[in-house]
Amino acid sequence: MTTSDPPPPPESAAPSTPSPASAGEPRPARRTVTLAVVVGSCAIAAATAIPAAAFVAAPIGSKGGGGRWVRTLRVDQLVDGEPKRVAIVDDRRDAWTIERGVELGSVWVVKHGAKVSAFSSVCPHLGCSVNLAPEAGGGFACPCHTSAFDADGKRKSGPSPRDLDALATRIEDGFVAVEFRRFRIGVPEKVET
């Protein structure tokens, strides 16, 4: 079988024995062909890779949608100084789905006299959901990485880089309305996603 092999074509000659055609200055035609092959391959790669990459990277430019005012509970359901976790119920647009009246997340609402304040329940450290901390002398604690906050949301101890994120509130017909927003996690500044 081996004896019947045809002699190797000049293109596949080993580099140690250059054929006269490729010695010294490459012939312009050969250089053009190489260039054409490289450019052609790059064009094929780019034609598929660029649209695919642009498609996959599209969400990078997306914004968190900003704040929205959502009614929660009645003011008289709050006991002075006792924070209450309330669900934020509103419409949710998720990619191709629209859902009416679903829970988007939750916030902590607390009343001190006439003043009602609200905090995002998302821990600014790495985004777990903060709980009340009755054992730690009141305030809030994160069940993940031991961040602790006082009753006014100020950082007491633990790794969180900032205080709990306060949310704007107002009273509408006896109900507490909260401006529901989300903020970037794990950074000292309170900036919206």
Binding site: V56, I60, G64, D94
Partner: peptide, 15 residues
């Protein structure tokens, strides 16, 4: 940008 790329947006969802 990395987080949004992974999550498919600013928040967790179908994407």
């Amino acid at each position: 940008a990395t987080q949004k790329l992974l999550q498919g947006g600013a928040e967790y969802g179908s994407l």
